[in-house]
Deep mutational scan, measured.
Amino acid sequence: GKMTGIVKWFNADKGFGFITPDDGSKDVFVHFSAIQNDGYKSLDEGQKVSFTIESGAKGPAAGNVTSL
């Protein structure tokens, strides 16, 4: 299901970062391709987001990332 969290950091040049889930679980990798907006796909440190957990090739990653 949907989770919420805070963006820990995001490197716009490399197109990835990490989200710290509100439930205290392990930080989740986020790739820019998972960001659900029409414009420039980037996130800001400290931004609140909702997301799902998808299993990627390198382990769990955030999917369906939407800013709240």
Rank of each mutant, 00 (worst) to 15 (best):
G1F: 10
G1I: 14
G1W: 07
M3G: 06
M3A: 08
M3T: 14
M3N: 09
M3V: 13
T4M: 10
T4C: 05
T4H: 10
T4W: 08
G5V: 00
G5E: 00
G5Q: 00
G5S: 00
I6P: 01
V7D: 00
K8I: 07
W9H: 04
W9L: 04
W9A: 03
F10N: 01
F10G: 01
N11P: 02
N11K: 08
K14C: 05
G15S: 03
G15E: 02
G15A: 03
G15P: 01
G15H: 05
F16S: 03
G17K: 00
G17Y: 01
F18H: 03
F18I: 06
F18C: 03
F18V: 06
F18D: 01
F18S: 03
I19T: 00
I19H: 00
I19E: 00
I19S: 00
T20R: 06
T20K: 13
T20M: 15
D22E: 10
D22N: 12
D22P: 03
D22I: 10
D23V: 09
G24H: 10
G24Q: 12
G24V: 04
G24N: 08
S25E: 08
S25H: 07
S25W: 08
S25C: 04
K26Q: 13
K26T: 11
D27T: 07
D27N: 08
D27M: 08
D27S: 07
V28F: 05
F29W: 09
V30D: 00
V30Y: 04
V30C: 04
V30W: 02
F32M: 13
S33Q: 07
S33D: 05
A34Y: 04
A34H: 06
A34F: 04
A34D: 10
I35G: 03
I35E: 02
I35V: 10
I35F: 07
Q36W: 09
Q36V: 10
N37V: 14
N37M: 09
G39Q: 12
G39R: 11
G39L: 09
Y40R: 03
Y40P: 14
K41D: 06
K41T: 11
S42C: 05
S42M: 15
S42H: 13
S42P: 06
S42N: 08
S42K: 08
L43P: 02
D44Y: 14
D44C: 05
D44Q: 11
G46H: 08
Q47P: 01
K48Q: 09
K48Y: 15
V49E: 00
V49K: 00
S50P: 00
S50D: 06
S50R: 06
F51G: 01
F51L: 03
T52R: 06
T52Q: 13
I53W: 08
I53N: 05
I53R: 08
E54G: 07
E54D: 12
E54S: 13
E54I: 14
S55P: 15
S55N: 14
S55V: 15
S55C: 05
G56C: 04
G56N: 14
A57Y: 14
A57L: 14
A57S: 14
K58H: 13
K58L: 15
K58Q: 12
K58Y: 13
G59A: 06
G59Y: 07
P60Y: 13
A61V: 14
A62S: 03
A62D: 01
A62M: 01
A62V: 03
G63R: 11
G63H: 14
G63V: 15
G63M: 12
N64I: 07
V65P: 01
V65E: 01
V65L: 05
V65C: 03
V65W: 00
T66G: 05
T66Q: 15
S67W: 12
L68A: 10
